[in-house]
Design a protein around this nucleic acid. Sequence first.
DNA 1: TTAATCTCTCTAGTAACTAGAGGTTCAAGG
DNA 2: CCTTGAACCTCTAGTTACTAGAGAGATTAA
Lengths: 149, 149
Amino acid sequence: MFSIGQLAKSAGVKPPTIRYYEEIGLIAPIERTEGGQRRYDHDGLARLAFIRQARDLGLSIAMIRDLISVGENRDAPCARAHELARTHLDLVRARMLRLQKLEAELARIAGAADEGVAETCQVLAALADGAPSPPDASDSGRIRSSKAA
Amino acid sequence: MFSIGQLAKSAGVKPPTIRYYEEIGLIAPIERTEGGQRRYDHDGLARLAFIRQARDLGLSIAMIRDLISVGENRDAPCARAHELARTHLDLVRARMLRLQKLEAELARIAGAADEGVAETCQVLAALADGAPSPPDASDSGRIRSSKAA
DNA sequence: TTAATCTCTCTAGTAACTAGAGGTTCAAGG
DNA sequence: CCTTGAACCTCTAGTTACTAGAGAGATTAA
């Protein structure tokens, strides 16, 4: 039997986070003491560890919820879990591409600052570079990177 | 003179986003019409473009605010801008490392699902692997991914 | 002039927590 | 047994960077 604090320490999260997970239906204590305090068993610990691990890997709560229900529903789980992993892998790769571009850009910017003549700082100009085209009726479609990295 | 909609279209954002930027003090219209509608000039457009560009590169609003004030204050700007870019570059590189690990992990997971015997799905087990560090009082530096990717 | 399209403000919602107030319970020591 | 102090409880509100919608007023083209 673990208190919420022990569980929290084991999984490397804070107690409020566990309460939050409970509130959104990810994890529940096996019981409460007479006084109303939460008590967890090893299953609870494992579950929290799983959630934490998945979060640290960058999975969203929604995805974790999905994985958990897949795990509990032993009917046709594997294909679904596989699909989830794949989807997330795609997301991650897209993110990495964006970050790589960003890294190059920032390196350029920092470099510009290094080399720049003291008086004319290039950093801001560098940042402004590659900015959007001026207002123009031909609006077609500007691609927003939306859900930023 | 641009309306908020024209500005939005030019910069690839939605009007509410511009109002939001105004609310938090990033950008303001040069004037309002008699009827109270916002009007912007080319400076406004440039500023919004700058903000958008920086956001797309992953900079936080706080950092952008900093850069803007640096840009407006022509005293000792370059060192500061340089510092900001460097800081952000470090952040980005740390993020990329995490994402690389994540990518490997997910590839492994997806692979496990591919190869897995149909009955024993390895995905969930794979996710649970490499779980948390054991409970430990010296909890000083657990690196939480906090401000997620 | 009229209709269509914008725009206005305001409120509330999103993700994934974190922080704090004010009060209760638990476990250990005397 | 009783007290202390740490841990726990619930609840509200704040964070970041927006997005969505309601209901009303402004602008513009035909």
